[in-house]
């Protein structure tokens, strides 16, 4: 009976479906990565390996446009991730270490709001808002919108980490006459660092990747990488777009892997 009960956990075909699932998830990305190295003007025929489309990205006719878009994207992601991570860290401290209070549930609801409202609705609402208060659309409006929707993405890993830290550490510090501020900066903050780094990295990727909200709140002529790529793809998929996509894909994979390794190393301790 022991043998049989072990087998029971497995269903035939589930392993095949899992492999199929991973295949579907990765096939399109791998295909684009491979074709970005294609030495051909046409995207259909394979004519050998080359880096010409990567060179095209940096020196070609559209390189200036993409350079500016890339700089915009990275600057916005950097600031938005940092600002939202600071706010999320404070909010998590209040929600998880602030005892029971009236607005606790409401605060959590407000923080998760950007995850519940469909992105296109947030985009429309933000556009209407900026228009109504008479702010010119541009980099600043993109940045403000990004800070807002990055907060829940930064919050989730930070609060997950904080839930795993016993409150006795800060309490011990305060028993030894540390001020509340010291207990926060010297004890709680270092312990939370892996969660904070994960949260920052995830917020950074989410900001870097955003298309829909950015597309609504950007002014005419202001582009981030996704909006520039979208504009270009509308006229057909070109090889230089595949090269840019592959690089952006690489950035995301590296950052997610970092975030994962940081949280994992720490959990194994």
């Amino acid at each position: 009976m022991a043998m049989k009960s072990y087998d029971l956990r497995q269903y035939p075909s589930f392993k095949a479906i899992t492999i199929f699932c991973l295949f579907i998830l990765y096939a399109p990305l791998l295909v684009v990565t491979v074709y970005s190295f294609n030495d051909s003007v046409s995207i259909t025929n394979w004519e050998g390996v080359s880096l010409r489309w990567y060179a095209e990205v940096f020196t070609g006719a559209e390189s200036e446009k993409f350079k500016i878009a890339a700089r915009n994207s990275f600057v916005i992601a950097l600031i938005a991730a940092s600002a939202s991570t600071v706010m999320a860290t404070f909010a998590a401290t209040a929600i998880l270490r602030g005892g029971r209070f009236k607005l606790r549930t409401a605060s959590f609801g407000l923080i998760s709001l950007p995850l519940m409202v469909p992105e296109i609705v947030t985009a429309v609402a933000t556009l209407i808002f900026f228009n109504a208060i008479g702010v010119d659309r541009g980099l600043i409006t993109i940045l403000l919108a990004h800070i807002a929707f990055c907060i829940p993405f930064a919050y989730l890993p930070i609060s997950a980490r904080m839930q795993g830290i016993e409150a006795t550490y800060e309490q011990a510090a305060m028993d030894l006459y540390a001020t509340r501020a010291k207990a926060f900066t010297r004890v709680l903050l270092p312990l939370m660092m892996p969660g904070i780094i994960s949260g920052w990295l995830l917020a950074f990727i989410v900001s870097l990747d955003d298309f829909i909200i950015t597309n609504f709140v950007k002014g005419a002529g202001v582009e981030t990488l996704p909006t520039a790529i979208f504009g270009s793809v509308k006229q057909g998929i070109k090889p230089n777009i595949m090269a840019i996509s592959t690089m952006l894909l690489g950035v995301s994979v590296v950052m997610v892997t970092l975030s994962w390794l940081i949280s994992r190393r720490d959990n194994n301790k």
């Binding site: 990747d209 996704p226 996509s245």
Partner: peptide, 10 residues
């Protein structure tokens, strides 16, 4: 975590 736009284009 890979850009949704890039995934859709792919």
């Amino acid at each position: 975590w890979v850009n949704l736009l890039i995934r859709t284009v792919s």
